[in-house]
Amino acid sequence: MPVLCTRSMGAAMATVVELRTAVALAGRFPALSGVDLSVEAGEVVVVLGPNGSGKTSLLRTCAGLLNVSSGTAVVLGCDLREDRVAVRSRVGLLGHAAPLYDELSARENVRFATRALGYPTDRVDPALERLGLVGRLRRTPVGRLSAGQRRRVALAALVARSPELWLLDEPHAGLDAAARRLLGELVEEAATGGAAVLLSSHEPDLSVPMADRVVSLAGGTITSSSPGGRATKLSVVDLPAPLGAGGSNVA
């Protein structure tokens, strides 16, 4: 089962990611140079930036895969500078390369990912069905699947693991229109369920409407931040009706 970090953030527990002037190293080389970013539970943050801007490094840092050499980096209450391993079982990272074994079927791959966390395997079939992986697709070795289908299997593993922090690195790549719509639904469901989502993208048309907040990354630092489409949509939904308009709303 997931390991809870001993260093709790106390009152600020709703903050899932807290980076302050965080510098992360990929090997000996700086991958992030002083990033300031916070992501709250239930929030979807999209990271935009050109190739080499540090988007993947940012996500890998939040997953506890890169070494944070200076600044503050706390993810899910775990101080990454003290213990970056503890957070790993609580995040779900969809990277460029899917963490799948070619010889195993979609079902076996998702089952392995689920059992590794000690979760019951009755999560596996519903997750596969949610991603449209039914019938023969479920039993086919993933090495024989298309890139988009492999992406779906990796997403199914994330759904089965239901992480507290979703880290999606250019998740639209290789997905057809239907799968992209499904991805949008999954992100929305995850955020509505209280998980935080940090998503990097090259495709603002697809990703910005999903976001509460959009940040731009360049040269390993955050250069700007603006509201995304989800924030606008939610604020419209949340707006109370004008007094007297419906008669039943009380301010």
């Binding site: 997931p2 790993r88 079982s89 995040v91 899917a98 799948l100 590794a116």
Partner: peptide
């Protein structure tokens, strides 16, 4: 592969 190596590190095993 990069994916499976990271996957094992993130697996919780």
């Amino acid at each position: 592969g990069e994916g499976t190596r990271d996957g094992l590190r993130l697996s919780g095993l």
